[in-house]
């Protein structure tokens, strides 16, 4: 018998601190697997953001740097410009990227920085116990929208991928989910493409992953997957918003 699935070399053998069934773990595995499979791990530098994944520098088996809340794209820009041969990525949640860090992500994309952003959208501030995020769905109950998000006073969700795709510097933008084996395979393909876009020096690449937060959504891990497939996907349709025709495979 041969091994058909084993732990990726891109992650250190340290248990994640994430809640049971939280799909942050799946996204970590995909990023790590892609870096290993492309032979990029040794030259990779990741930037951890602020959110439940603030300390994922303890998990990835490559160099990592922690950034202040929302500033990961600015830190990644500096790293990439000083070390242009490095493969530089940010790993950011929706509270980090679409609230306090909106300016940084928009301008990194507009400048066409040759970095890759993995944007994990779970429609909530997970780490701080489930407050409303800019990405929270209309009607979604959170600790700061106890009667459901009311668009009249709290506005509408931000579709970050669609917004960034309007910028010339953003050359590859895709939204994926990790709610099934098929979805996970598609998400891995997207992350692989995003890193290859960076290696070719084509510009800014961005993958939004719809992810779960069972703890703060008040759903079981399995129910949470279903909620992504239904409620979340209605607001955030999957697809390639930029760069569908790019040929980057070596």
């Amino acid at each position: 018998m041969a091994l058909v699935y084993q732990r990726t070399c891109g992650l250190l053998d340290v248990p994640f601190h994430y809640c049971p069934g939280c799909t942050h773990g799946i996204v970590h595995k995909l990023v790590a697997e892609v870096l290993c499979e492309l032979g990029l791990l040794d030259g990779a530098i990741g930037v951890s953001s602020v959110g439940c994944t603030y300390n994922n520098y303890e998990y990835f088996a490559c160099d990592m740097q922690q950034a202040a809340h929302g500033r990961a794209p600015a830190v990644a820009t500096g790293i990439k410009r000083v070390l242009p041969d490095a493969t530089v990525f940010t790993y950011q949640g929706d509270g980090d990227l679409a609230a306090i860090g909106t300016a940084e992500i928009v301008h990194a994309a507009a400048r066409g920085e040759r970095i890759t952003t993995v944007f994990v959208n779970n429609a909530i501030y997970g780490m701080t116990s489930g407050q409303m995020a800019p990405t929270t769905l209309v009607g979604q109950v959170t600790t700061t929208s106890p009667y459901g998000r009311d668009a009249a006073t709290q506005g509408f969700p931000i579709n970050v991928s669609e917004m960034l795709a309007t910028l010339r510097g953003a050359v590859y933008v895709e939204r994926v989910s990790v709610t099934s084996v098929k979805g996970i395979r598609a998400a891995k393909k997207a992350i692989r493409k995003a890193f290859l876009v960076q290696r070719k020096g084509l510009g800014f690449s961005f993958v939004e992953v719809l992810s779960t937060c069972p703890t703060n959504w008040g759903l079981s891990p399995v129910e949470s997957l279903k909620w992504v497939d239904t409620a979340m996907q209605e607001q955030y349709p999957l697809g390639v918003f930029k760069g569908a025709d790019l040929e980057v495979e070596p």
């Binding site: 018998m1 041969a2 699935y5 992650l11 799909t23 773990g25 799946i26 595995k29 996970i184």
Partner: peptide, 16 residues
């Protein structure tokens, strides 16, 4: 390996 691919915590290893 569906179980292993889906596991967020790298619990599962599969041989065939």
């Amino acid at each position: 390996a569906f179980c292993a691919i889906m596991c967020p915590d790298e619990v599962i290893q599969v041989e065939k």
